[in-house]
Amino acid sequence: MSDPHSTAPVPSPRRRVGRPAGRRAGDTTTRDRILDSARQHFARGSYSSTTIRAIAADADVNPALVIHYFGSKRDLFGATLRLPLHLRDQVSALIRTDPDDMGEHVVRLFLTAWRDQNVRTPLSAMIRSVFSDEGAADALGQFLATHLLGPLVAASRRDRPELRVSLAASHLAGLVIGRHILGVAPLARADIEQLVACVGPVIQHYLTGRLPAVPTE
């Protein structure tokens, strides 16, 4: 018969064997760890070759936790593309500037952002995947529309905002592909202010200029 006054330790519940699911929901360090892992994987490979399972393994979490935080690979990829706080503040400041100068400001901000490693690494990986993966192309468009061009077009209250965003996004994407991915010599060597002077007026027209009338049947 056991002694009711015994001080022997009570055995702890047996832990379930397997990879930990991460810290409790809402722990920002777990979320940041997943994002860091995702950035590294997308930078080393491509959108299509990167898997949730591999990202989770390097972040030391269960793959289900990645889905819990981000929903899908596309949403996780989009999260890695979010502008750093200082760049988001600059986008917000552009909304309050003279809309007639917006094109030059947008081009300067976008090209300058590529000097930031946290922006350049995931964007470069994503753009390399655009040519072969529809999901990466969608993620690029979503990034430009949500974090850079969309708010500016909405603030200008011009007609056909979705078309304006698409035109400007396509032009900016082509510019950085030529400059940073393909390394087209004149673009790669050009000073940022040279490109701002050349491309700024075009982006300005897309954002605030008069677009051709929609043909009617």
Rank of each mutant, 00 (worst) to 15 (best):
residue 1 M to V: 10
residue 2 S to D: 12
residue 2 S to I: 10
residue 7 T to D: 06
residue 9 P to V: 07
residue 12 S to L: 11
residue 12 S to E: 09
residue 14 R to I: 15
residue 15 R to V: 12
residue 16 R to M: 05
residue 16 R to G: 09
residue 17 V to D: 15
residue 17 V to C: 13
residue 18 G to F: 15
residue 21 A to V: 06
residue 25 A to H: 06
residue 25 A to Y: 12
residue 33 R to G: 12
residue 35 L to D: 03
residue 39 R to K: 09
residue 42 F to C: 15
residue 47 Y to F: 15
residue 48 S to H: 14
residue 51 T to I: 05
residue 54 A to W: 03
residue 58 D to S: 08
residue 58 D to E: 09
residue 60 D to K: 12
residue 60 D to W: 01
residue 62 N to V: 02
residue 63 P to H: 01
residue 64 A to W: 04
residue 68 H to C: 00
residue 70 F to N: 04
residue 70 F to D: 01
residue 70 F to L: 11
residue 73 K to N: 10
residue 77 F to N: 07
residue 82 R to L: 14
residue 83 L to E: 07
residue 85 L to V: 15
residue 85 L to I: 09
residue 87 L to Y: 13
residue 90 Q to K: 14
residue 90 Q to C: 05
residue 91 V to Q: 12
residue 92 S to C: 06
residue 93 A to Y: 02
residue 94 L to C: 12
residue 95 I to S: 07
residue 101 D to N: 08
residue 103 G to Y: 04
residue 108 R to F: 04
residue 109 L to T: 09
residue 109 L to R: 11
residue 117 Q to W: 02
residue 119 V to G: 06
residue 119 V to D: 10
residue 123 L to F: 02
residue 124 S to N: 10
residue 127 I to T: 12
residue 127 I to E: 08
residue 131 F to C: 00
residue 131 F to G: 11
residue 131 F to P: 02
residue 133 D to A: 06
residue 135 G to A: 14
residue 135 G to L: 07
residue 140 L to Y: 10
residue 144 L to C: 00
residue 145 A to D: 08
residue 150 G to F: 14
residue 151 P to W: 03
residue 157 R to T: 15
residue 157 R to V: 09
residue 158 R to I: 10
residue 158 R to C: 15
residue 158 R to M: 08
residue 159 D to T: 14
residue 161 P to V: 11
residue 163 L to Q: 06
residue 165 V to F: 07
residue 166 S to A: 15
residue 167 L to K: 02
residue 169 A to Q: 04
residue 169 A to D: 00
residue 171 H to P: 00
residue 171 H to S: 07
residue 172 L to T: 03
residue 173 A to H: 00
residue 173 A to S: 07
residue 176 V to I: 11
residue 180 H to V: 08
residue 181 I to C: 06
residue 181 I to G: 07
residue 181 I to K: 04
residue 184 V to T: 14
residue 185 A to E: 15
residue 186 P to S: 09
residue 186 P to L: 11
residue 187 L to I: 04
residue 194 Q to I: 14
residue 194 Q to M: 05
residue 195 L to K: 12
residue 195 L to S: 10
residue 197 A to G: 04
residue 200 G to T: 08
residue 200 G to Y: 12
residue 200 G to F: 13
residue 202 V to L: 06
residue 205 H to L: 03
residue 205 H to R: 10
residue 206 Y to M: 01
residue 210 R to Y: 01
residue 217 E to K: 13
residue 217 E to I: 14
